[in-house]
Design a protein around this nucleic acid. Structure first.
Lengths: 366, 366
DNA sequence: TTGTAAGCGTTATCAA
DNA sequence: TTGATAACGCTTACAA
């Protein structure tokens, strides 16, 4: 004998018609009184509301959506919400959505483009009112453009794309990386390694510039690539060593790959005196590799990481990092989205949020 | 001159009727062919599908939901998804939902009961098919029971309540705490402090048991209270010091409160030789307080924390912790939910997932 | 201001 | 197997 754990049971939910009958008015009047539209005489409104309370009426939002076209919900699509960056961004998006009386529907796409395409398709079918997405690809965005064409606004988080006329909320990745590098270079380092996570396809392409013999980078406008660009630009500006062996790529999803790359970097015949880790995964990888190898930070190698996660301040030594605020980015993206939902129609803007170099003890003069 | 950034535009989306006309069949047939229900002759089915493709038809899920009553989406309600525990749980819930062809709608309730009530109300209005919730209160659950009465299954995450006939997915908090304490007590510690986060209302009540003079605890069945219970039970079993001054409460939302309590504990005239931090926030608080005060771990004080977050293995010394798997808990909760959604009707069960004591270097013999 | 009736796009019923 | 038609619960012309 099971109790009521939620299996559908008989009692039909009261509808506007039921309330109307109970209050002795027409459905139209009841509807107006309950939905706060049109004009209703005060005493009738009250009678309707009492009847509704008595019956335990609750509006059926689905039916309402069918008429109005809107669902008062937005989608949030990201690589992995268990990642602290996206978790914080999601928090920002949710907060704004709730302030606006909207809900957020969540999609995890695990860096897989086909999953992202499907997520967008499902969101469109669900008649969502707008989408905040941190797209995997910045070149293959047909699915996102289709959403716009259907009248569903899209805001990009942490990525910009020239191929889409949409708002995007980003940080200045190149400048942030340049700033981190400048800090190391000012301290006298001239042999600085880089560890960066890249996605399998659209990975960056390191090139040697013929005229100078120095490194350059080619690739889509993605955070990681812009950070590499900042790294190389700083190297050039300070006339530091620009060598292929000092640049290491890994993938975002596993710290242990990052650790392996970091290890290889630290074990070089002529190892770097400082390392810039271009994201939170590689930061953890470099830190761990150094510890395991007994390479002392900052005496033997200086480290600048990316993202001000809790642990970076807790470890010994506390890590110097480039700090950004994913929660603010999420908030801002959602705010932009709601402007569009309200009908604002102007060219997509690129909104750049500030970063801050949090100097701690993992960096020291050479 | 703005491009198409998502402002609603004219083109009406094709409906089943449009497809039917294009294919030269009735709406009923077109509906059957598109929705995969009823029987349709193969050639007609094909003709309909071609017509649909030609027109770019996509089903209107809202209309479908209105008829069927289901929305193929579930709600996830938690205190704070930016918290790594809930972020991981949410990931588990989302994964299962997507495997089932469902979506997850997210609610942050920030430890506020009124916000939680509203979240449930909104989810019900949205005609959600089920809810996974980590409820703030385990006594005031009328809103959750109402959801069940409406036929919407509810699964509790990380909390159990005797007042509700619902599945719940938890760990054995008392046993986990007891295990952590046993580890310390086996090492010879007899003066062990406790720092635990509690919610303002429904806070635990420490009581002195008249007959033995030792401490007891009264309060709802919540993780924190069960962990306190485990702490006290271990103290009794090993005949260790049971003193009011060694037990510290703080609130979950800020590490700095936890740090202050930990600091007070460490600065006692007769300080504890070991501390058990009953959750991830207090673990961070105790660790930081010890560092700031220059109290050496584990030589001057041993520490066992709760939750195996990344940083606990990264710091020096790595922290011994009780590890649980919030992602598995989220998965399990969602799996249970879908059983209910599919109509399974049996008494609510309490599913207990395992924990593991991860012994690292923050604990040493007295 | 109120009521009647016609949708919204889908699925279910019933006859053919 | 197919087609006409009636729901689902709400909003909104239009008429009273």
């Amino acid at each position: 004998m099971a109790g009521d754990t939620g299996a559908r049971n008989g009692r039909r939910r009261p509808t506007v018609a039921d309330v109307a009958r109970e209050a002795g008015v027409s459905v139209a009047t009841a509807g107006r009184a309950l939905g706060n539209y049109g004009r209703v005489r005060d005493d009738l409104r009250e009678r309707v509301q009492e009847a509704a309370a008595r019956l335990g009426y609750e509006p059926n939002v689905v039916a309402r959506s069918m008429r109005s076209g809107g669902t008062r919900s937005i989608g949030f699509v990201a690589a992995d919400i268990a990642n602290p960056y996206f978790a914080a961004a999601m928090r920002g998006v949710c907060d704004v959505a709730h302030e606006e009386g909207y809900e957020a529907i969540l999609f995890n796409v695990d860096d897989r483009l086909d999953v992202e395409r499907n997520a967008i398709k499902v969101l469109l079918e669900k008649q969502i009112d707008g989408i905040v997405v941190s797209p995997i690809s910045v070149t293959d965005m047909g699915h996102l453009r289709r959403a716009q064409e259907r009248g569903v606004p899209v805001v990009l988080l942490d990525r910009t794309s020239a191929r889409m006329n949409a708002d995007s909320v980003v940080i200045d990745n190149e400048a942030a990386a340049y700033g981190a590098m400048a800090h190391l270079l000012e301290l006298g380092h001239r042999r600085v390694g880089l560890v960066a996570s890249v996605v399998p396809h659209e990975g960056p392409e390191l090139v040697v510039r013929e005229d100078t013999g120095r490194l350059g980078v080619r690739g889509a406008v993605r955070p990681s690539i812009d950070r590499i660009r900042g790294y190389l630009a700083a190297l050039d500006a300070y006339d530091a060593v620009s060598a292929r062996e000092l640049v290491r790529f890994t993938s975002l999803d596993a710290v242990r790959y990052a650790e392996a790359e970091a290890d290889a970097l630290l074990m070089l015949a002529e190892p770097p005196t400082a390392v810039f880790a271009a994201d939170n995964v590689t930061t953890q990888g470099v830190f761990t590799a150094a510890r395991k190898r007994g390479v002392k930070i900052p005496t033997e190698v200086s480290l600048v990481g990316f993202d001000d996660l809790d642990w970076t301040a807790l470890v010994d030594p506390p890590v110097t990092v480039v700090a950004q605020s994913p929660m603010d980015m999420g908030r801002t993206a959602a705010e932009r989205l709601f402007r569009r939902i309200r009908g604002e129609d102007r060219p997509g803007a690129r909104i750049v949020l500030p970063t801050r170099l949090e100097v701690r003890s993992s960096t020291a003069p050479l």
